[in-house]
Amino acid sequence: RELEAFAERFKQRRIKLGVTQADVGAALANLKIPGVGSLSQSTICRFESLTLSHNNMIALKPVLQAWLEEAE
């Protein structure tokens, strides 16, 4: 499924970029996305391991996609 594929791609790109899960969480606050502050390292970890609820995964995907586009 698309969500699982994105989570895997996100993790691979993050590692290639040399960015930690905690760095991603902190950097999200800098994107100034309305309603989104920083996220914890454990939230990023749970996203990558697909252990968040489906609704949370869907909500976080565009936020993490925005970070990925900014980071690349």
Rank of each mutant, 00 (worst) to 15 (best):
R1W: 08
E2P: 04
E2M: 03
E2D: 15
L3E: 04
L3Y: 07
A5T: 13
A5G: 12
A5S: 13
F6E: 01
F6Y: 09
A7K: 04
A7R: 02
R9A: 12
R9S: 13
F10C: 02
Q12S: 11
Q12I: 08
R13W: 05
R13Y: 09
R14T: 00
R14Q: 03
R14M: 00
I15S: 08
I15L: 10
I15W: 03
I15D: 07
K16R: 13
L17I: 04
G18N: 07
G18R: 06
G18F: 01
T20D: 02
T20Q: 06
Q21E: 15
A22G: 11
A22S: 11
D23K: 09
G25C: 15
G25P: 05
G25Y: 11
G25V: 14
A26Q: 12
A27R: 04
A29P: 05
N30E: 11
N30P: 06
N30W: 13
N30D: 08
K32G: 08
I33H: 06
I33T: 07
P34Q: 03
P34S: 09
V36F: 12
V36R: 05
G37Y: 14
S38P: 14
S38I: 13
L39V: 14
S40I: 02
S40K: 02
Q41S: 15
S42T: 10
T43E: 06
T43D: 05
I44V: 15
C45R: 05
C45L: 11
R46V: 00
R46K: 14
F47A: 01
S49R: 09
S49C: 09
S49E: 15
S49T: 14
S49N: 13
T51W: 04
T51A: 12
T51Q: 11
L52S: 13
S53Y: 10
H54Y: 12
N56T: 02
M57P: 00
I58D: 15
I58F: 15
L60A: 05
P62C: 02
P62A: 04
P62H: 10
P62Q: 04
L64M: 08
Q65W: 02
L68V: 09
E69L: 10
E69P: 02
E70C: 06
A71D: 02
A71G: 07
A71T: 11
E72Q: 06
E72W: 05
E72M: 04
